[in-house]
Design a protein around this nucleic acid. Structure first.
Lengths: 244, 244
DNA sequence: CTATATTTGTGCGTATGTATT
DNA sequence: AAATACATACGCACAAATATA
């Protein structure tokens, strides 16, 4: 391995390229400790800043993860993720029983702001129950969701959620065993620090964000949910035509 | 505006925060020339490196665009984009006549690799016609797509595409005025340099990538397409349930 | 628990290269 | 050709988080 200090490619690019190749070759297992900045600096005979620039690039590509004071670690690039390129999201979810594996975290009461009020067809300021859930498959967290329920329409939903820690079960106990998904809107974003954290992913990697509305059988809104999926670990498969 | 050199926040973060606020306040119109590194360096009384780190952050957030030798420019954060948060993708596409506004760029012949062969239900190595299209609305390019057609099943498709520069028209002339979308898979990615370029977006901003399969009325595959949307300018709206 | 070493994070000063005007 | 503006690289110093003796 030697660097070309004369022309064209910047040193940090060459270093990033070399390190990237080593990681992708599989020589380093995911989670393994990476060489320290000092070591790399000595190895490539460049200044530490130059190494840092290269590592920054690797971070941005999602290949490594840097922890202050601890070191740099190889980030498993989608190792053993349950959703392959040809796997249908629906089938996977059902076959693995994802819906039951969803864990309800915290539950709190809030007041509906303008947007939520319109979506859920309640008055602005109406009481909502807000809860957060984590979905995982094969022990890998792949989605973080926030759900909003109109409390007036679902009396005691908060208690049911805390007791059952299941959305489906809670709605069923309130007489809505049969609700339906009205629509889902999908966008791509970069996660904020918190969402990146719960998904265990670098903030530099994109996520799929879906917003969806569930209705009761009579057409009144029961739940509005925002879900964040690890963007390059998942594919959402939609039957039929999404845009034409 | 003064920086806190004592505690907590790094200087470059404070600077990025300040500049971000100025941009978001709308004081600087999109496309406007930004202050140079030297100017900012003098203004905040920090080293140019520190300013560069801050600008890098703004770049990553998609607020500015840096051009070597020219300067730094304010990147319009979705100014005048046609798809609002509550706008249904389908409605917009139809009402603006997006399908006709799609422009067919280049057309070439390739051989089907394993994956394409399986998707299109042809033999590996079978001739495919590959074409690229740009979709825009209000003069704003918002999607770049690549389409694959099985040539054996669509004789002369290449000529039709070059003549009409329209996918729908070409298929119609070949007796497939009536095809249907079988499925669409949606994922989130960061664009490569080329796609970022044609979409006129920074490589640091995520895109929505959809893969979709269109079938003839008898169920044989007619087209496989990969589309790249400006991830945070668009939302794909799906009726019904995408995953449960 | 404390002290020390290790490792990453921030910032400055300087110098030189490359692209644009 | 010269000036301007961004890009790369080095060296030094110290701070902050973590690990270790």
């Amino acid at each position: 391995m030697s660097l070309d200090r004369q022309i064209g490619a910047a040193l940090w690019r060459q270093i990033a390229e070399a390190l990237s190749a080593e990681i992708c070759s599989g020589a380093l297992p995911p989670g393994a400790r990476f060489a320290t900045e000092s070591e790399l600096s000595a190895r490539f005979k460049v200044n530490r800043h130059t190494v840092r620039r290269a590592i920054q690039e690797l971070t941005h590509q999602g290949l490594v993860r840097v922890e202050h004071g601890k070191g740099t670690f190889v980030q498993g690039p989608g190792i053993d993720y349950p959703l392959g390129p040809r796997t249908r999201f629906t089938e996977i979810m059902l076959s693995k029983g994802i819906s039951p594996s969803r864990k309800v975290l915290e539950t709190e009461r809030i007041e509906a702001d303008g947007r939520l009020a319109e979506l859920l067809n309640v008055a602005t300021g109406a009481p909502l129950v807000c809860t957060e859930t984590l979905s995982s498959a094969n022990g890998q967290t792949f989605a973080f969701s926030i759900h909003y329920f109109p409390e007036e329409r679902l009396p005691g939903i908060a208690k049911h959620l805390e007791a059952t820690r299941s959305i489906t079960a809670s709605l069923e106990q309130l007489g809505h065993g049969d609700y339906r998904r009205e629509w889902t809107r999908v966008s791509a974003e970069l996660p904020d620090a918190r969402i990146a954290d719960v998904l265990g992913r670098p903030q530099s990697r994109p996520i799929l964000k879906t917003e969806s509305l569930n209705l009761a059988t009579d057409g009144t809104p029961l739940e509005f949910g925002v879900a964040h999926f690890s963007g390059d670990l998942c594919r959402l498969t939609v039957e039929g035509a999404p845009y034409d």
